[in-house]
Computed example of a mutant assay.
Amino acid sequence: MTNVDDQIQARIAEQQRRREERRQRRAELAEARAHGLTARMRTKMRRWDDEDDGQGAA
């Protein structure tokens, strides 16, 4: 291969590496977001239950 071909192959490999890193980062953020939303909804529902309990006792 020529030097130009080597440079092109190196550039392609770097782009693939970056693409994979971005894909991995997006997957990690999506997982963290889903966990955060679930935890937030649990907290919200617990607060609703506490409010309902308080109104029922009054």
Rank of each mutant, 00 (worst) to 15 (best):
Q16A: 07
D53Y: 11
L37R: 04
G54T: 14
W48H: 14
G56N: 15
G54W: 15
D53W: 05
A58F: 13
R46N: 09
V4L: 10
T43A: 10
A27I: 01
D5R: 14
L29W: 07
T38A: 15
R47S: 00
R23I: 09
R19D: 04
T38G: 03
R42C: 03
Q16T: 05
L29D: 03
H35C: 13
L29I: 06
D5M: 13
Q16K: 07
Q9R: 08
N3C: 11
Q24I: 06
E20K: 09
K44S: 04
H35N: 14
R11V: 08
A39C: 09
Q15D: 00
A32H: 07
D6K: 15
R47D: 12
D49W: 13
T2F: 07
R25M: 04
A34G: 05
W48D: 12
A13P: 02
R23E: 01
G54A: 15
V4N: 10
R19V: 03
G36I: 03
D5L: 04
D50V: 05
A39E: 06
A39M: 11
R47W: 11
Q15W: 05
A30G: 00
Q24R: 14
Q15F: 06
E21I: 06
I12R: 13
R40I: 05
G36T: 10
G56M: 15
R22C: 00
I12F: 08
Q15E: 08
D5V: 03
G56P: 13
R17L: 02
R19C: 00
T43S: 12
G36N: 14
L29R: 07
A30D: 05
R17T: 02
N3S: 10
R25I: 03
D53T: 02
D5F: 11
Q16H: 08
G36H: 14
D50W: 06
A58V: 12
A10G: 06
M1P: 12
A27C: 07
Q15T: 08
M45R: 14
A58G: 12
D53P: 05
Q15R: 06
W48F: 11
A10D: 06
G56F: 15
D49K: 10
G54M: 14
Q55N: 08
D5C: 03
M1W: 15
Q16R: 12
A34P: 05
R42A: 08
D50Q: 04
R19E: 04
T38L: 08
R40H: 03
E28D: 03
G54C: 10
D53N: 12
L37F: 11
R40D: 10
A13D: 02
M41N: 09
A34N: 06
E20I: 03
A10Y: 01
I8T: 05
V4H: 14
R18P: 06
E20D: 05
R33E: 02
D6A: 14
V4S: 12
E21Q: 06
D53K: 06
A57H: 04
T43H: 15
G36E: 14
M41F: 04
Q9F: 06
R25H: 09
